[in-house]
Design a protein around this nucleic acid. Structure first.
Lengths: 172, 172
DNA sequence: CCTGTTAGTGATTGGCCACTAACTTATTCG
DNA sequence: CGAATAAGTTAGTGGCCAATCACTAACAGG
């Protein structure tokens, strides 16, 4: 048994939660599954977080924040469009991260309360950050985000990389 | 008590299932809820369908098929791009239909078996149909689908129509 | 009118799951 | 050391939910 500070544990829980929620969604994931992945007893999760929803919210915001950060860090001001696209391509290698993003979107539609407002705010900030990076051209921003969301869908659906629906994203 | 043929009942179940699954997702929707909406007892669902998964699959394929049909029917060959975009705009007034689409995507990622293959096939056909309607220009097809998927996301997240993230989809 | 079939229900069950309570073990520090 | 504190566990509970079973009510044809 490896003892950790509560803060470190919470961190592990968030990571595990992203993986589990990504696959099962909110209702399809048991706290038991998360706890097992962390390597801790299930009831202990409820000491670290007030409830399942709180775990999901933490995982959701973390997922969006990390995605955003990866994009920002990977973007070269010299050629933002190309470098950002490349950064997203790198990002989606992590399937769990991408699936979690999708789960967050449908969860917001379902919960529709404080949770929704919180996520909308994070997403909005993300949008704005991209907007600035792409030279504050609204058209470009919409364009980039659109492509991103299509990619999410194609990955979710599990189309293999050589399928024709991917043809416009082919590496040069 | 209104008696119906099994086939008619199945139809009602599919409609009810789309509404319920759209809001709760696969795991977040009880067969009880679907049955209540249909106006029928819960066990009877299992006479009409072999199980919950089968109900979801029926609802999923129906949702995609109807969406596709609405796009095809709404597209004017004279100006496919504009008319198809308008058709999608009309389509998304039905929030349940759109949310169900999202639920299908995440469900495929989770189930990842026969179910996934079935849905991929339907989606692929949809893609091809759009492709032809848009003049077999792969770039245009990707473009259109991307916009569609971004719209789905924005609706799921619940951004009000006057929010800046919508600015590029503003009506002329 | 009776007999086979089809539509539909009520009661139940076994399993899972979020969450609580009460207890145990390790760490820190005066 | 020893006692307060923080990390973690085992055992249990009430509620929900998919699926089954055994049954009843309506209709159709002869």
């Amino acid at each position: 048994m490896v003892r950790m500070s509560a803060e470190e544990r919470r961190e592990s829980v968030i990571r595990a939660a992203i993986t589990e929620f990504a696959r099962g969604g909110y209702h399809g994931t048991s706290t038991e599954a998360i706890a097992r992945r962390v390597g801790v007893s299930q009831p202990y999760l409820f000491r670290l977080f007030p409830g399942k929803q709180a775990i999901f919210l933490a995982a959701a915001t973390r997922c969006l924040a990390e995605t955003r950060k990866a994009l920002e860090d990977g973007t070269d001001p010299g050629d933002p469009h190309m470098s950002m696209a490349a950064a997203y391509k790198r990002l989606i290698q992590d399937r769990d991260m991408l699936l979690m993003q999708m789960q967050v979107y449908v969860a917001v539609a379902a919960m529709e309360d404080e949770f929704g407002a919180e996520i909308r705010k994070v997403w909005e900030d993300w949008w704005d950050a991209i907007h600035v990076l792409l030279g504050a051209d609204a058209h470009e921003t919409t364009f980039f985000m659109s492509y991103g969301m299509l990619i999410n869908t194609l990955v979710s659906l599990g189309f293999p990389p050589d399928h024709r629906v991917w043809s416009n994203f082919a590496a040069p």
